Simulated assay, not measured.
Amino acid sequence: MNVFEVADILVNHVKNVYSEDIAIIAYYGSYAQGTATKRSDLDFFFIPATTKGYQASIQFIINDISFDFWPISWERAERMASFQETQTTIIADCKLLYVRSDEDSERFMKLRDTISSMQNAEQAQTMIEKAESELRNVYEHLYKLSHASEFESITFYRTEAYGVLTKVFQSLALLNGTYYTRGFGKNREQILQLPLKPDGLESLMKTIMHTDVNTDMLQACEKLVADTFELVLAQKEKYFSSPAYADRMKGYYEEIKGVLDKIITACEMNDYDTAFFSTIHAQDEIARFLFFAETGHWPSSLMFNSTYQDIYKRLGFPELVALLYPHDLSQLQLAVVRLSSLLETHLQTKGVEINRFANIEQFEAFLKEISAQA
């Protein structure tokens, strides 16, 4: 069977029934890349132009070969092109079979321009952040693996390990500013040729994919994730910028003071619940903002808080969280008062202007001055 005869039939069907409702028809995969076998199907997709266009979707089997004529919205195609979704290759490497208009063709080609621009050196930092975001999705699988019974089935372990592998691989592709042109299982060579990858990647892959010992699989998954995370952080640090407090911390003290005052009130009223939540939130947030002011990056959500709290501690700011004593909040109260003063002074020495007014008249005069300058 010539699969392209099937393509011709579908395109003619669209022209007859959906001529104004489908913008693009294309194929991708093995036939587009010249790697098809006798059992390969023709991987179609189409981009609907109207709601009616979605009705053209159909799945069928001819001569024991399966076909899937499925829709991708313009919005999803844009997410693929900007590396917000996987399968960027579908947009980048497909072959067009039908285009409704010049405008549709131009819009589609802009998607490919987006893919090219995302791979430029100027977008390296953005791609690293996407790699970090993708890596976060690994931890649901690690959690299940680490909490599973040692007697859990090999099917369970391999299924969760598959989730770890595919997400780590996708994170590595993003870290390298690229995408996979072939599906998992056929892209080993491309994965192993990535310039940025954990040491021992091939060995870890082999253990995860070949072992039938649950503990070995878990340990290999944990090692792969940890090494990939360290690699992402190392690349991210290359884009740390110089400290810039005046811009990055403008208005911050005025905001966080409200939280610190809430803690003081909670201490005075012996309200431990409020003190507990507000104290932990305040110290962690101050530490995060200080890290941002120093580096130009927010600390990674995968980073241990002890890492980004180093700046907070180096400045000699009090450890509020350690002073959460349920039956005595007096030490915490004194520490919060001290922190408020130290933080304000530190920000001012770094060039941060604090909008502090002794009375309403001063505030009103400040607003008039701003109005006069506008």
Rank of each mutant, 00 (worst) to 15 (best):
K368E: 10
A56K: 00
F291L: 03
N359V: 05
D8L: 02
S82M: 12
P326W: 10
K257E: 11
V213G: 05
E134V: 11
C221S: 11
R288D: 07
T155D: 03
Q170I: 09
G200V: 08
L165Y: 02
V337Q: 13
E369S: 06
P195C: 12
T228P: 04
S82F: 12
R182A: 04
A293D: 00
Q123S: 07
E222Q: 13
H297S: 09
Y162R: 15
V232F: 07
E344G: 07
L347A: 00
L174Y: 06
T86R: 11
E255P: 00
M269E: 09
S30T: 15
R338S: 13
S341A: 13
A26Q: 05
T279R: 00
G258N: 09
H297A: 07
S330D: 14
A77W: 03
W298Q: 15
L224D: 02
Q362I: 14
E150I: 08
L342A: 03
F46R: 00
E230M: 14
T126K: 11
I25G: 00
A124G: 08
A121L: 10
D247E: 04
D247Y: 03
T51V: 14
A282P: 04
E152S: 14
F67I: 07
A266F: 02
L343A: 06
I61D: 15
E134W: 05
E78F: 11
V352K: 00
D113C: 03
K186N: 12
T349P: 00
N2T: 07
F108D: 01
S82C: 13
Q219I: 15
A92Y: 05
E129L: 10
I65H: 14
G34Y: 08
A36Y: 08
L194F: 14
G163W: 08
D212S: 10
R188F: 10
E364Y: 15
T207W: 06
L323G: 07
N176I: 09
L175E: 01
V14P: 02
T51H: 09
A293C: 01
I256Q: 00
Q235K: 03
I256P: 01
C221V: 15
S203C: 10
K206C: 05
S242F: 14
R188E: 14
I263F: 01
E152A: 13
H346F: 06
T86D: 13
L218C: 04
Q125L: 09
R107E: 05
I9C: 02
D41M: 12
